[in-house]
Amino acid sequence: MISQKKNVLMTLTPVGDKSSRDFMETFYENWLYPDDPEKKWFDGAKKKTRSPAEALHQTRLEFIHDKKPVQEWAPYVLVGK
């Protein structure tokens, strides 16, 4: 039997529409396209997948690196089995 993990990415406080869209687009890019050489974090290592937790961590690092306000990236948490 194959186990599928189910996760929910949510915020603990309200987040604006534009910043939410930007965060989620970046999160999905980090999760679904982990070996994109266009990304500034690309280290040359080919990865087929990245876990949602790794993608969330990478997204936060990108927002911190780009000096985005803490209110745009800190409220996001990943909850799952």
Score class of each variant (00 low, 15 high):
I64P: 07
E72N: 15
W41K: 06
K47H: 14
L78S: 05
R50H: 10
E38P: 04
I64V: 15
Q71G: 01
F63D: 05
E54Y: 00
K39R: 15
W73N: 02
L56C: 11
W41Q: 05
F63W: 10
P75E: 13
A74E: 03
K68D: 00
Q58C: 01
D43R: 02
K68F: 05
I64N: 04
D43N: 15
P69L: 03
P69Y: 07
E38G: 10
V70M: 03
Q71R: 03
R50Q: 09
F63N: 03
D43E: 10
D43A: 02
V70T: 14
P52R: 02
R60S: 01
Q71H: 06
Q71K: 08
P75H: 08
R50T: 09
K46G: 03
K46S: 02
P75C: 15
W73D: 01
R60D: 09
F42H: 14
F63M: 12
Q71S: 09
E54H: 01
D43S: 10
F63H: 04
K47S: 02
V70P: 05
I64Q: 13
E38C: 02
G44C: 12
E54K: 00
H57M: 04
P52H: 06
K68I: 09
A74S: 13
R50P: 01
P75K: 07
A53D: 15
P69A: 09
Q58M: 05
E72L: 12
E38D: 13
E54I: 01
Y76A: 05
V70I: 13
A55E: 09
P69H: 06
F63L: 11
K39V: 08
A45S: 06
R60V: 12
K46E: 07
F63C: 04
Q71L: 06
K68Y: 10
R50D: 00
Q58V: 00
A74Q: 03
F42K: 09
D43G: 05
S51P: 00
H57T: 04
K67Q: 14
R60I: 14
R60Q: 12
F42N: 11
